[in-house]
Write a protein that binds this DNA or RNA. Structure first.
Length: 926
RNA sequence: GCGGACGUGGCGGAACCGGUAGACGCAACAGACUUAAAAUCUGUCGAGGGUAACCUCGUGGGGGUUCAAGUCCCCCCGUCCGCACCA
């Protein structure tokens, strides 16, 4: 019996699959299709273990569905545009294209080593002109169809890097790379009209079109779209007010609480509101106030702390229902981007309005009376009342419930012609312009005469210039000496290319459609795309729950509108897998340490470490307990050591001890060890188990694992321990366990070489031995578990099956052959290389990746006898064995005559016997 | 602040519609094989009590519904995630 050697076996089968083109998807449409897709990777350099988990899951599904007879599409490509390539160019001078394609070559090789059942013939990168040309084409179509437009908008501008930053790239009001305070600027940008689909994107979440999506993702999308119904209405200026030019009608506000209109005591507009800008022209102090608001931080913290501030303008509006006049403020807490950028303030029933009114001494009249309160004596108790109740102090609304009053107020305002009920969304149009080089060029030309003009179809693709200067910040396309200078396609005069490129989220918004069909002259061949779409199973990280998935859903609708697709929803079933996490390690100097550099010290080594490091440790503890500025008396040994090293006085230095911060929290007896560059022994403490990241060095390389244990072991372990949607901790003992399993399977198989040639499994057997029952239970269980994405349970069942197989030493050859044949096929989706090797050794026909999935025989799943638990007064007291088909009466008699049961009901009267068929018997006695 | 998910042995986790809590794996311990170690194999493995059969307790805490609760309901505690001045 030879030991299993993945280093030889894995490449051998990868080559066979390649030669047989096992995973290239045919064009035949006669079989039922199944499209399984994992979110494609960004080519950052090397694959990491998280990729392995992601692609292993998709691979299980792909291989399983293929075995079940589906026409499976399982492609791979590269999300290849993006900032890291440009950053690399700035740092190393390597061109983004060279960097990106180089990484792709490396990562493709690594993925192939994983033995994934991927149709590599469909591979592409989004930075291929042959891909993005269609993106440009579709942009022009969207533009024509009114789905793309240009407008001025506020952006986060990094004055050092000279680029627009996404909100996520602004940290505490500063640019994430430059650290410079971010400015808000108005820029003319391209937008996609995703708000056109707000209602449908929302509706599909609930109407069954996305029944295959996890609830949490649907909820996040729902919140993101943020639908709210309310009233948009106008507050006319008071008769004696001179309205500013262009604003004669008054102030347009949005509210979800028109029931509280009688509680209004002010009107507030956003500092970014056009009316504010107009007023600032003649009011310097207001201009100053607006500037202050603009420079305030946009971080969470800043918003949290930001005080409600307002500037009282000279304007006043009339209340629509009574004689009151309401002052108009410019207020920092009113957002221009939501609603109309203006509100009416009802301090009694809104926290923000309450804070504001308190600060500026405005009236706070209550208009909602909580149930059970007395209208005559009711007073607010230091805070606004947000809950339900009856409206009062409100004339025609008095006595109505909140919801009835909302309807009544809207009706009245509509009758008065001051506004109408509207639906608002939090979702805003998708700004897609980026001042970057490494992205898809936007095919538009600016002409002084003709305005903005589309690049004619025949001139597509607009490709990036190869030469570009990355040595200074800013957009290399904009400062390129020649690229942007072109003639206007309309008038032939001098024009300039659009130098912004597309947000890379666009690239990933339709790649799944391109995988299905790749004609040269259009984005997709509609017939072929209609066959493959939607993706039957999409798999990826929860971090894409909102943006990527929402954009892809929008893009699919937009592609449908311009005639490329027939579906609304791109992904029928979505699975969000957890991350791979790993313990972090830090040495005594406070440096992160790679797991592979750590070892368990011998006793001698530990003594040496203690001699040097215990004083620091002690000190650290004291510092933790007492805070800085304490005096500490060292133990005698520590003191001697310090003096000998000349460190005695240094230990009062906070910085010095700070370096050892991490190790204070671990007992010295638990210290691990590593060696410094100079070869010195250092203590190492293990810390939080976190997402693997380069900066914390808690990474393991998939290549290293594959070298030691093989790709199969890595795949098996990634799927075995935790449920797929949860995080899994990478541990050495875990992979070793997987490696053991591989050898156990190999041992079982190699004890019966050629058994599938000597035993004819087509000849039926009426054998009903335990092994056969175990075989069919395993088939049924594993099948069900894979169908429900429970890979960890499927794996547990395979272990159980393997244990049963080992115990069944005396089973017939026929039963053994059946068991081994099933075993190989059941493990094939998880550990495909070993499965092929087993299949060959057993004497199976052809490749196992083409073999059909085993079928469970229902006759063998049904057991003749079952074991039932018997409870007395709800506590389990005995077990009885009864025929599976025994009726309740027989079961009851068997239970009552059991010796243990008799003992427990001795001296009591049996009141009731509950028999739950095939589950349990409960005897109630007292 | 709003919304959501989760909490089970030393660890990762099973437990389907409320029906024998702890499947399977890891770690640990004992034994076999070995000059020895590794590997492998066999066994033990929630806590407490008992020679034993067995008994008591036990799914974050408290209460409730039920013949029966990890599972359902109410309250509390804790962890994680999303959104966040959204009118």
């Amino acid at each position: 019996m030879s030991r299993y050697n993945p280093k030889e076996v894995e490449p051998k089968w990868q080559q066979r699959w390649n030669e047989a083109r096992s995973f290239e998807t045919g064009a035949s449409k006669d079989r039922q299709k199944y499209y399984v897709l994992e979110m494609f990777p960004y080519p950052s350099g090397r694959i990491h273990i998280g990729h392995v988990r992601n692609y292993a899951m998709g691979d299980v599904i792909a291989r399983y569905k293929k075995a079940c007879g589906y026409n499976v599409l399982h492609p791979m490509g590269w999300d290849a545009f993006g900032m890291p390539a440009e950053n690399a160019a700035m740092q190393t001078g390597s061109h983004p294209a060279k960097w990106t394609y180089g990484n792709i070559d490396i990562m493709r090789g690594q993925l192939k080593q994983m033995g994934l059942a991927i149709d590599w013939s469909r591979e592409f990168a989004t930075c291929d002109a042959s891909y993005y040309v269609h993106q440009q084409r579709m942009f022009l179509e969207f533009w024509q169809a009114g789905l793309a437009y240009r407008k001025e908008s506020q952006v986060n501008w990094d004055p050092v890097d000279q680029t627009v930053l996404a909100n996520e790239q602004v940290i505490d009001g500063k640019g994430w790379r430059s650290g410079a305070p971010v400015e808000r600027r108005k820029l003319s940008q391209w937008f996609f009209k995703i708000t056109d689909y707000a209602e449908d994107l929302l509706a599909a979440l609930d109407d069954g079109r996305l029944s295959g999506w996890p609830d949490n993702v649907k909820l996040m999308q729902k919140n993101w779209i943020g639908k709210s119904k309310g009233l948009q209405m106008r507050f006319p200026f008071a008769p004696d007010v001179k309205a500013p030019a262009g604003f004669g009608d008054g102030v347009e506000v949005f509210t979800t609480r028109p029931d509280t209109l009688y509680g209004a005591s002010f009107v507030a507009i956003s500092p970014d509101h056009p009316l504010a800008a107009e007023l600032a022209k003649t009011d310097k102090d207001l201009g100053k106030f607006i500037a202050e608001c603009a420079s305030a931080g946009t971080s969470e913290e800043a918003i949290e702390k930001a005080e409600k501030r307002g500037y009282k303008t000279s304007l006043e509006t009339s209340h629509p229902f009574d004689e009151r006049k309401l002052p108009v403020y410019v207020a920092n807490f009113v957002l221009m981007g939501y609603g109309t950028g203006a509100i009416f303030g009802c301090p009694a029933h809104d926290q923000r309005d309450y804070d504001f009114a308190t600060k500026y001494g405005l009236a706070i009249p209550p208009v909602v009376l909580p149930d059970g309160a007395d209208a005559a004596t009711y007073k607010l108790d230091g805070e606004p009342y947000i809950g339900p109740g009856k409206i009062f102090n409100s004339d025609f609304l008095d006595g109505l419930s909140v919801s009835d009053a909302i309807a009544a107020a809207i009706k009245k305002i509509e009758e008065m012609g001051l506004g109408q009920g509207v639906t608002q969304y939090r979702l805003r149009d998708w700004g897609v312009s980026r001042q970057r080089y490494w992205g898809c060029p936007i095919p538009a030309i600016h002409c002084d005469k003709c305005g903005i003009v589309p690049v004619p179809e025949k001139d597509l693709p607009v490709v990036l210039p190869e030469e570009a200067d990355f040595s200074v910040p800013g957009n290399p396309l904009d400062r390129h000496p020649t690229w942007k200078h072109v003639d206007c396609p309309q008038c032939g005069g001098k024009g300039r290319r659009e130098t912004d490129t597309f947000d890379t989220f666009i690239d990933s918004s339709w790649y799944f459609a391109r995988f299905a069909s790749q004609p040269e002259d259009k984005p997709v061949d509609k017939d072929v795309a209609d066959y493959w779409l939607p993706v039957d199973q999409y798999i990826g990280g929860i971090e894409h729950a909102i943006l990527h998935l929402l954009y892809a859903r929008f893009f699919t609708r937009a592609m449908k509108k311009v005639g490329h697709l027939s579906v609304d929803e791109p992904f029928a079933n979505l699975f969000t897998q957890g991350m791979v996490v790993h313990a972090t390690y830090m040495d005594g100097y406070g440096h992160w340490v790679l797991p592979e550099d750590i070892f368990t010290p011998t006793e001698d080594e530990l003594k040496k470490i203690h001699a040097t490091w215990l004083p620091r440790y002690e000190l650290g503890h004291e510092l933790e307990k007492k805070g800085p500025g304490f005096s500490h008396k060292f133990s005698e040994t520590s003191q001697k050591h310090l003096e000998r090293c000349g460190l005695a006085d240094k230990f009062t230095d906070r910085h010095f001890i700070g370096t050892a911060n991490f190790i204070y929290h671990t007992g010295p007896e638990d210290w691990l060890a590593c060696k410094s560059h100079e070869g010195l022994l250092l203590p190492v403490a293990s810390g939080a188990i976190e997402k693997m990241s380069k900066s914390k060095k808690n990474v393991v390389s998939p290549e290293g694992i594959a070298q030691t244990y093989g790709a199969d072991a890595a795949r098996w372990f990634m799927l075995s321990d935790s449920p797929p949607e949860r995080d899994v901790e990478w541990t050495d003992s875990g992979v070793e366990g997987a490696w053991k399993l591989i050898n156990r399977i190999w041992d079982a198989v190699s004890a019966a070489p050629g058994i599938l040639k000597t035993v004819d499994l087509d000849k039926a057997s009426d054998d009903k031995t335990e092994l056969r029952q175990a075989t069919h239970a395993a088939i049924a269980g594993v099948t069900d578990d894979i169908d429900h994405f429970r890979f960890n349970k499927a794996i547990a069942r395979i272990y159980e099956f393997l244990n049963a197989l080992k115990k069944a030493g005396d089973a017939s050859d026929w039963a053994k052959a059946e068991a081994l044949s099933a075993l190989a096929r059941l493990v094939a989706p998880f550990i495909p290389h070993l499965a092929e090797e087993c299949w060959e050794t057993l004497g199976g026909k052809d490749l196992i990746c083409d073999a059909p999935w085993p079928k469970a025989d229902p006759a063998l799943l049904a057991k003749d006898e079952i074991v039932l638990g018997v409870q007395v007064n709800g506590k389990r007291r005995a077990e009885i064995t009864v025929p599976a088909e025994a009726d309740n009466k027989t079961v009851e008699e068997a239970a009552l005559s059991d010796a243990d049961v008799k003992r427990h009901i001795d001296g009591k009267t049996v009141r009731k016997v509950v028999v739950v068929p095939k589950r349990i018997v409960n005897i109630v006695a007292n």
